[in-house]
Protein backbone atom coordinates (compact mmCIF):
# COMPACT_ATOMS: atom_id res chain seq x y z
CA UNK A 1 0.00 0.00 0.00
CA UNK A 2 2.73 2.47 1.05
CA UNK A 3 6.31 1.75 0.23
CA UNK A 4 9.09 3.97 1.59
CA UNK A 5 12.55 3.37 0.16
CA UNK A 6 15.66 4.85 1.76
CA UNK A 7 14.39 8.38 2.31
CA UNK A 8 16.55 11.13 3.73
CA UNK A 9 15.34 14.58 4.59
CA UNK A 10 17.24 17.73 5.44
CA UNK A 11 15.96 20.95 6.95
CA UNK A 12 18.79 23.19 5.85
CA UNK A 13 21.89 21.37 7.11
CA UNK A 14 20.05 19.43 9.73
CA UNK A 15 19.33 15.82 8.75
CA UNK A 16 15.90 15.04 10.24
CA UNK A 17 15.26 11.70 8.52
CA UNK A 18 18.13 9.29 7.98
CA UNK A 19 17.73 6.54 5.39
CA UNK A 20 14.28 5.30 6.43
CA UNK A 21 12.58 2.39 4.68
CA UNK A 22 9.13 0.98 5.44
CA UNK A 23 6.47 -1.22 3.82
CA UNK A 24 2.87 -0.85 4.95
CA UNK A 25 0.42 -3.59 4.00
CA UNK A 26 -3.29 -3.05 3.28
CA UNK A 27 -5.43 -2.92 6.45
CA UNK A 28 -2.36 -2.64 8.61
CA UNK A 29 -2.33 -0.18 11.54
CA UNK A 30 1.17 1.20 12.09
CA UNK A 31 1.82 3.30 15.17
CA UNK A 32 4.88 5.55 15.25
CA UNK A 33 6.20 6.54 18.67
CA UNK A 34 9.27 8.45 19.72
CA UNK A 35 10.48 11.51 21.61
CA UNK A 36 9.59 14.94 20.27
CA UNK A 37 11.99 16.10 17.59
CA UNK A 38 12.62 12.53 16.51
CA UNK A 39 11.21 13.30 13.02
CA UNK A 40 8.04 11.22 13.31
CA UNK A 41 5.68 14.01 12.19
CA UNK A 42 7.97 14.96 9.33
CA UNK A 43 8.08 11.31 8.26
CA UNK A 44 4.28 11.15 8.25
CA UNK A 45 3.99 14.38 6.24
CA UNK A 46 6.38 12.99 3.63
CA UNK A 47 3.88 10.19 2.97
CA UNK A 48 1.39 12.57 1.37
CA UNK A 49 3.90 14.98 -0.05
CA UNK A 50 3.31 17.85 2.40
CA UNK A 51 7.06 17.64 2.95
CA UNK A 52 9.44 16.83 0.11
CA UNK A 53 12.23 14.33 0.65
CA UNK A 54 15.87 15.07 -0.09
CA UNK A 55 16.72 11.54 -1.23
CA UNK A 56 14.84 8.27 -1.69
CA UNK A 57 11.41 7.26 -3.01
CA UNK A 58 7.91 6.88 -1.61
CA UNK A 59 5.19 4.93 -3.44
CA UNK A 60 1.53 5.17 -2.54
CA UNK A 61 -0.50 2.52 -4.32
CA UNK A 62 2.24 2.22 -7.00
CA UNK A 63 2.34 6.02 -7.63
CA UNK A 64 5.71 7.53 -6.87
CA UNK A 65 4.90 10.69 -4.93
CA UNK A 66 8.56 11.69 -4.72
CA UNK A 67 8.71 11.99 -8.52
CA UNK A 68 8.53 15.59 -9.73
CA UNK A 69 6.07 14.75 -12.54
CA UNK A 70 3.55 13.06 -10.26
CA UNK A 71 0.36 15.04 -9.76
CA UNK A 72 0.33 15.26 -5.98
CA UNK A 73 -3.32 16.35 -5.80
CA UNK A 74 -4.39 13.06 -7.37
CA UNK A 75 -2.39 11.06 -4.83
CA UNK A 76 -3.40 13.15 -1.84
CA UNK A 77 -7.11 12.57 -2.27
CA UNK A 78 -6.36 8.87 -1.70
CA UNK A 79 -4.40 9.62 1.46
CA UNK A 80 -6.46 11.05 4.29
CA UNK A 81 -4.70 13.18 6.88
CA UNK A 82 -5.72 14.28 10.36
CA UNK A 83 -3.71 17.07 11.97
CA UNK A 84 -2.74 17.78 15.54
CA UNK A 85 -4.49 21.15 15.41
CA UNK A 86 -7.53 19.88 13.43
CA UNK A 87 -7.15 22.57 10.73
CA UNK A 88 -10.85 22.73 9.98
CA UNK A 89 -11.76 25.36 7.41
CA UNK A 90 -12.76 28.19 9.73
CA UNK A 91 -15.06 29.98 7.28
CA UNK A 92 -17.11 26.86 6.48
CA UNK A 93 -19.75 25.08 8.53
CA UNK A 94 -19.20 21.50 9.65
CA UNK A 95 -21.23 20.10 6.75
CA UNK A 96 -19.39 22.35 4.27
CA UNK A 97 -16.05 21.18 5.65
CA UNK A 98 -17.04 17.62 4.85
CA UNK A 99 -18.57 18.34 1.42
CA UNK A 100 -16.14 20.82 -0.13
CA UNK A 101 -13.55 18.20 -1.08
CA UNK A 102 -16.19 15.87 -2.49
CA UNK A 103 -17.66 18.63 -4.65
CA UNK A 104 -14.46 20.37 -5.77
CA UNK A 105 -12.06 17.42 -5.98
CA UNK A 106 -14.24 14.35 -6.52
CA UNK A 107 -16.71 16.40 -8.61
CA UNK A 108 -19.73 14.93 -6.84
CA UNK A 109 -23.07 16.74 -6.88
CA UNK A 110 -23.90 18.77 -3.79
CA UNK A 111 -26.73 16.39 -2.88
CA UNK A 112 -24.57 13.29 -3.15
CA UNK A 113 -21.84 14.96 -1.14
CA UNK A 114 -24.24 15.99 1.64
CA UNK A 115 -25.71 12.52 1.84
CA UNK A 116 -22.25 11.06 2.29
CA UNK A 117 -21.32 13.83 4.74
CA UNK A 118 -24.32 13.09 6.96
CA UNK A 119 -23.40 9.40 7.00
CA UNK A 120 -19.89 10.25 8.11
CA UNK A 121 -21.03 12.80 10.71
CA UNK A 122 -23.34 10.12 12.06
CA UNK A 123 -20.37 7.77 12.23
CA UNK A 124 -18.36 10.27 14.31
CA UNK A 125 -21.47 11.14 16.31
CA UNK A 126 -21.86 14.78 15.26
CA UNK A 127 -24.83 14.86 12.93
CA UNK A 128 -26.60 17.47 15.06
CA UNK A 129 -23.61 19.84 14.68
CA UNK A 130 -23.78 19.89 10.86
CA UNK A 131 -24.71 23.58 10.67
CA UNK A 132 -22.29 24.72 13.38
CA UNK A 133 -19.01 26.49 12.67
CA UNK A 134 -15.67 25.10 13.86
CA UNK A 135 -15.16 27.82 16.49
CA UNK A 136 -18.42 26.73 18.13
CA UNK A 137 -17.15 23.17 18.68
CA UNK A 138 -14.93 21.67 21.37
CA UNK A 139 -11.52 20.36 20.36
CA UNK A 140 -12.66 16.76 20.44
CA UNK A 141 -15.66 17.55 18.25
CA UNK A 142 -13.46 19.47 15.81
CA UNK A 143 -11.08 16.55 15.52
CA UNK A 144 -13.95 14.15 14.82
CA UNK A 145 -15.18 16.48 12.06
CA UNK A 146 -11.63 16.53 10.68
CA UNK A 147 -11.67 12.74 10.55
CA UNK A 148 -15.03 12.81 8.74
CA UNK A 149 -13.61 15.39 6.30
CA UNK A 150 -10.70 13.09 5.48
CA UNK A 151 -12.93 9.99 5.19
CA UNK A 152 -15.25 11.82 2.79
CA UNK A 153 -12.59 11.46 0.11
CA UNK A 154 -12.73 7.63 0.45
CA UNK A 155 -9.00 7.39 1.13
CA UNK A 156 -7.16 4.07 0.90
CA UNK A 157 -4.98 5.04 3.85
CA UNK A 158 -5.35 7.47 6.77
CA UNK A 159 -2.45 9.36 8.33
CA UNK A 160 -2.89 10.68 11.89
CA UNK A 161 -0.42 13.31 13.13
CA UNK A 162 -0.69 13.32 16.94
CA UNK A 163 -4.50 13.59 16.72
CA UNK A 164 -5.06 13.84 20.48
CA UNK A 165 -2.08 15.95 21.58
CA UNK A 166 -3.93 19.26 21.44
CA UNK A 167 -6.99 17.98 23.28
CA UNK A 168 -8.09 18.35 26.87
CA UNK A 169 -7.78 14.93 28.58
CA UNK A 170 -11.54 14.38 28.80
CA UNK A 171 -11.87 14.63 25.03
CA UNK A 172 -9.12 12.21 24.07
CA UNK A 173 -11.37 9.20 24.52
CA UNK A 174 -14.05 10.24 22.01
CA UNK A 175 -11.44 10.73 19.26
CA UNK A 176 -9.64 7.47 20.01
CA UNK A 177 -12.98 5.66 19.93
CA UNK A 178 -13.61 6.84 16.38
CA UNK A 179 -10.11 5.77 15.38
CA UNK A 180 -10.58 2.32 16.91
CA UNK A 181 -13.80 1.89 14.92
CA UNK A 182 -11.93 2.77 11.77
CA UNK A 183 -9.19 0.26 12.49
CA UNK A 184 -11.76 -2.43 13.20
CA UNK A 185 -13.39 -1.75 9.81
CA UNK A 186 -10.08 -2.51 8.13
CA UNK A 187 -8.79 1.00 7.30
CA UNK A 188 -5.06 1.15 6.65
CA UNK A 189 -3.70 3.63 9.18
CA UNK A 190 -0.41 5.27 10.11
CA UNK A 191 -0.65 6.97 13.50
CA UNK A 192 1.89 9.20 15.19
CA UNK A 193 0.85 9.33 18.85
CA UNK A 194 1.81 9.40 22.49
CA UNK A 195 -1.24 7.27 23.42
CA UNK A 196 0.47 4.02 24.32
CA UNK A 197 -2.81 2.40 25.32
CA UNK A 198 -4.14 2.98 21.82
CA UNK A 199 -0.91 1.65 20.28
CA UNK A 200 -1.13 -1.51 22.38
CA UNK A 201 -4.81 -2.11 21.70
CA UNK A 202 -5.12 -1.22 18.02
CA UNK A 203 -1.63 -1.30 16.52
CA UNK A 204 -0.52 -4.18 14.33
CA UNK A 205 3.00 -2.83 14.38
CA UNK A 206 4.81 -0.24 16.48
CA UNK A 207 7.78 1.77 15.19
CA UNK A 208 10.12 3.51 17.57
CA UNK A 209 11.72 6.54 15.86
CA UNK A 210 14.61 8.45 17.39
CA UNK A 211 16.94 11.05 15.87
CA UNK A 212 15.56 10.42 12.39
CA UNK A 213 16.04 6.63 12.40
CA UNK A 214 13.76 3.67 12.98
CA UNK A 215 15.48 2.29 16.08
CA UNK A 216 13.20 -0.70 16.58
CA UNK A 217 9.92 -2.08 15.26
CA UNK A 218 7.67 -5.02 16.04
CA UNK A 219 4.29 -5.99 17.45
CA UNK A 220 3.04 -3.96 20.43
CA UNK A 221 3.79 -6.96 22.61
CA UNK A 222 7.44 -7.05 21.46
CA UNK A 223 8.02 -3.30 21.73
CA UNK A 224 6.23 -2.59 24.98
CA UNK A 225 7.06 -5.77 26.87
CA UNK A 226 10.40 -6.83 25.42
CA UNK A 227 12.18 -3.84 23.90
CA UNK A 228 15.60 -4.89 22.58
CA UNK A 229 17.30 -1.50 22.16
CA UNK A 230 18.55 0.53 25.06
CA UNK A 231 17.08 3.77 23.66
CA UNK A 232 13.64 2.19 23.33
CA UNK A 233 13.82 0.99 26.92
CA UNK A 234 14.88 4.47 28.10
CA UNK A 235 12.03 6.15 26.21
CA UNK A 236 9.40 3.69 27.45
CA UNK A 237 10.59 3.93 31.03
CA UNK A 238 9.99 7.67 30.94
CA UNK A 239 6.60 7.48 29.32
CA UNK A 240 4.89 4.44 30.86
Amino acid sequence: MISVKNITKYFGRHEVLKDISLEIAPQEVVVIIGPSGSGKSTFLRCMNGLESVSKGEIFVNQAEITHSKTNLSLVRKEVGMVFQRFNLFQHLSVIENVTIGQVQVLKKSKQEAEKRAYELLDKVGLQEKAKAYPEQLSGGQQQRVAIARALAMNPIVMLFDEPTSALDPEMVGEVLAVMKDLAREGMTMVVVTHEMGFAREVGDRVLFLDEGRIVEQGTPEQIFNHPQEERTQLFLSKIL
Binding site: L50, S73, L74, N87, F89, Q104, R149, A152
Partner: peptide, 25 residues
Protein backbone atom coordinates in the same frame (compact mmCIF):
# COMPACT_ATOMS: atom_id res chain seq x y z
CA UNK B 1 -0.53 27.47 7.19
CA UNK B 2 -2.61 24.56 8.51
CA UNK B 3 -5.53 25.70 6.32
CA UNK B 4 -3.40 25.25 3.21
CA UNK B 5 -2.11 21.88 4.38
CA UNK B 6 -5.61 20.66 5.18
CA UNK B 7 -6.87 21.75 1.76
CA UNK B 8 -3.98 20.07 -0.01
CA UNK B 9 -4.39 16.91 2.06
CA UNK B 10 -7.88 16.42 0.61
CA UNK B 11 -6.45 16.72 -2.89
CA UNK B 12 -7.17 20.36 -3.70
CA UNK B 13 -4.92 21.99 -6.30
CA UNK B 14 -3.06 25.21 -5.51
CA UNK B 15 -5.74 27.16 -7.35
CA UNK B 16 -8.62 25.46 -5.52
CA UNK B 17 -6.88 26.01 -2.19
CA UNK B 18 -6.49 29.71 -2.92
CA UNK B 19 -9.98 30.11 -4.36
CA UNK B 20 -12.06 28.15 -1.84
CA UNK B 21 -10.03 28.16 1.37
CA UNK B 22 -7.48 30.96 1.62
CA UNK B 23 -9.01 33.93 -0.21
CA UNK B 24 -12.48 33.73 1.43
CA UNK B 25 -10.82 33.85 4.84
Amino acid sequence: RGQTEAAMSIGMTNFQTMRFIILPQ
